[in-house]
């Protein structure tokens, strides 16, 4: 069927999810009041805004992830051809990973991986 199947799958997913939600909407007669619309906080009245500050750790981990994810993308084409090229490819990737790993160790030394 070729790549057209991806479009078919997307449409099928939209039909499936949209159909379910539409049927539910058709069957249910909901009512709306002030208490119902509040954010759920285990029954007590909700307090303050959810837009609080949160731990910077999440951000740091996302940054380090970015480095390694790009590395992973570079590794995919390498992994396909390494069998044919042989030892030279292995040496090159060891150098590549070594440089990246130094960056990772630096981040670790700076305390980026420590959870406050």
């Amino acid at each position: 069927m070729g790549s057209a199947s991806l479009i078919v799958l997307t449409i099928a997913a939209i039909v499936f999810a949209g159909g379910g939600i539409a049927v539910a909407k058709f069957l249910v007669k909901g009512s709306k009041n002030a208490v119902k619309g509040q954010a759920y906080e285990c029954g007590i009245p909700s307090e303050g805004s959810p837009w609080n500050q949160f731990n910077i750790g999440y951000y740091l981990f996302a940054l380090i992830f970015l480095i390694f994810d790009v590395e992973l993308v570079f590794l995919y084409p390498w992994a396909v051809v390494v069998k044919q090229i042989g030892m030279a490819a292995l040496v090159e990737i060891i150098i590549f990973l070594f440089i990246l790993f130094m960056g990772f160790l630096y981040a670790h030394k700076q305390g980026a991986l420590k959870w406050m």
């Binding site: 049927v23 539910a24 909407k25 069957l27 249910v28 909901g30 509040q38 954010a39 759920y40």
Partner: peptide, 12 residues
């Protein structure tokens, strides 16, 4: 049962 439950969207 989930189909006949009300789908709430919270204020805000």
């Amino acid at each position: 049962k989930l189909v006949v439950k009300e789908g709430l969207t919270p204020d805000g």
